[in-house]
Design a protein around this nucleic acid. Structure first.
Lengths: 226, 226
DNA sequence: GGTTGCAATAACGTATACGTTATTGCATGA
DNA sequence: TCATGCAATAACGTATACGTTATTGCAACC
């Protein structure tokens, strides 16, 4: 009854994350450990362990006798998180541009950034939001990876996790992300030019705009919790 | 055998953190769950739960059949973490300054920032490093608190935790933090003037210097892991 | 002597048991 | 009717039990 390379605890973490991000465990809802264990086909122990890890990651709260509560976000909190994300990714953009300038990174290593930018354009032409979102995520992931700072990467991942559900839910409600696509291209240009400051500033502006779009959308929808 | 307001799991987290930060659980060392349980006077369950939470916080790694490994840091990683801390706290400084400018925050609410700056000066005059460190921590904590962004606060806390042990260990090895104390005063001045950009830039420079001091010190000591 | 394989050990993953305690519903009395 | 208190329930915190499996040491063989 032990691992086939993946423990039940790990499975529980993965499956609960998926349930949370997809919204099938609704923000603000509560779930008893035993119920979750039944749903996942395991005993309380690994579920409880998973819940503790997710709590440490800020995705849930464990409320004794009231179950595991799925954290929701207010619109203000969304804005706060985007502020954090903004400075973290701007740092990444600056570092990558600097690495290009100093030669620590070759131009060819920007392949994935270029590819994802191109894919975003193509997706935009087709009006394919899902494909756009995939490319967008690839761009941001790759940008942070290229910065070569594992702790920055971790901070970004954790921060992104907080808004992942909201992004998935609003993707098909917002206007086509035309400006956002242009933003990515501008960041890429600054990076290719090795201009750290510009890459940082352009990226910060990009996240600021993304924040405004998201906040405006949520406010227009009258969303208070997501 | 239940809680007196604090569960054994919570106690385990708190005590293990203390043991890690104080260095009594050395970076790079491994510890079996049962041994830790014996040391803390509880069963494996709460210790295991605590270990999982600390792993989610990036303080340890759980290595099956090799025990709980206390994460150490290379000098390069220290530099990386200071980079992250720099942009996060710079964001906080900018926000606080902006709040002063827009009146969202009154001048009197800067009391703790002023106090801690003054305390740093006094501590410096007496050559009292411990008191200086206390005031320094108070300044940074209060700065981030005043920004009013809980998620920023959490990111900063998590990031600071990563370097807490190193800071404690090097505090008495470095030169008196004269420049650092002046830096804080400069940040405070920019905040009082409601100049967000300046507050941000000055603070970023402050963390950059702090990083250089720390990295130089560790390199001179020949430290590869801390 | 070195290598290979097997047996013993023990650390771990997870199920389960159990005492504790918050919560809920009902009954009783004002 | 509403408030109060008690009893029943059940969710949780934690100890423990147990099967699985990696690791280690020793023996046998090359």
């Amino acid at each position: 009854m032990t691992s086939d390379a993946l423990s039940n605890t790990d499975r529980a973490v993965a499956e609960l994350r998926e349930l949370i991000f997809s919204g099938r465990l609704a923000p603000g809802s509560n779930h008893f450990e035993q119920d979750l264990a039944d749903k996942l086909g395991m005993s309380r122990t690994p579920v409880r362990e998973a819940a503790l890890m997710l709590e440490a990651q800020g995705l849930v709260q464990i409320q004794p006798r009231r179950g595991v509560r799925i954290n929701g976000l207010s619109v203000d909190e969304m804005a706060d998180i985007y502020d954090v994300l903004g400075v973290l990714e701007a740092l990444a953009a600056e570092r990558v541009a600097d690495k290009i300038r100093t030669g620590a990174l070759s131009g060819t290593s920007l392949g994935l950034l270029r590819e994802s930018t191109a894919q975003m354009r193509r997706a935009l032409d087709r009006g394919d939001r899902d494909s756009w979102a995939t490319a967008d995520e690839m761009f941001h992931t790759e940008l942070v990876r290229l910065a070569g700072n594992t702790h920055l990467e971790e901070a970004v991942t954790r921060t992104l996790d907080q808004v992942r559900r909201a992004r998935m839910m609003t993707l098909h409600l917002r206007d086509l992300p035309v400006a956002s696509t242009d933003d990515h291209a501008a960041v890429l240009t600054a990076i290719e030019a090795g201009d750290g400051q510009k890459a940082r500033d352009v990226h910060a502006a990009h996240r600021r705009d993304a924040k405004d779009v998201m906040v405006d959308l949520l406010r227009r929808m009258g969303t208070h919790q997501i």
